[in-house]
């Protein structure tokens, strides 16, 4: 009896420690969650402002941001989620109209510093500005985007996410009309 207890004690110990860690983390998460969401919204708002300099307000409905200036509708924006080399890549995509990309910004990513992390650089995200959605593909696949040297997976993840989500969102925009 005593020896079995001795044998399983480490298992019990690890389980208890992990449970306590989970409890502590979910408590921290519950405190910080609202604040983090608020920060992310602020970030998206400032990114939209950079993408559409004339923006005065925006509306968010069915996963699509519709951007307005004082008198006209400027375009749309939506979030895209890419599967990168080191985790998910959150991308904000702006559309000038239903066929043309206005620009993209990387909201967050955890790619390798120095390699994949360069997807955030303006030299890469700048390539998307003004492209037609059908041209969003790596050059090796017949598109207009140059992959970052040494970071084909990260580049491809961004391209795939932008294209797939754009096609989907445009479809839902057209259905609404």
């Amino acid at each position: 009896m005593k020896t079995t207890l001795k044998k399983i004690f480490p298992v019990i110990f690890v389980t208890v420690v992990v449970f306590m860690a989970v409890a502590l983390l979910s408590w921290t998460n519950s405190i910080t969650r609202d604040k983090i969401e608020f920060q992310e919204e602020q970030q998206i708002q400032s990114m939209l402002g950079e993408m559409f300099p004339d923006m005065s307000r925006y509306a968010f409905e069915d996963d699509i941001y519709t951007i307005y200036s004082d008198e006209a509708q400027l375009g749309y924006a939506f979030l895209a989620l890419g599967k990168g080399y080191g985790g998910s890549i959150n991308i904000l995509v702006g559309l000038e109209n239903e066929t043309t990309i206005k620009g993209i910004s990387i909201i967050s990513q955890t790619e390798t510093p120095g390699l994949g992390a360069r997807i955030s650089a303006s030299s890469f995200v700048g390539e998307f500005a003004g492209l037609s959605i059908s041209d969003v593909a790596l050059r090796q696949d017949g598109g207009q985007i140059d992959a970052i040297t040494g970071a084909t997976i990260s580049s491809g993840a961004v391209v795939d996410a932008v294209k797939a989500t754009a096609v989907e969102r445009v479809k839902s925009l057209q259905e609404k009309e």
Binding site: F13, V14, V17, V18, A21, L24, L25, T28, N29, I31, T32, K35, I36, Q39
Partner: peptide, 21 residues
């Protein structure tokens, strides 16, 4: 493993707090 779980817990807390504030 216990050390790592404890350290990772604190790191995650730092991560969440920095992200929020």
């Amino acid at each position: 493993p216990i050390f790592i779980v404890i350290i990772a817990t604190f790191v995650t807390i730092v991560n969440l707090v920095f992200h929020a504030y």
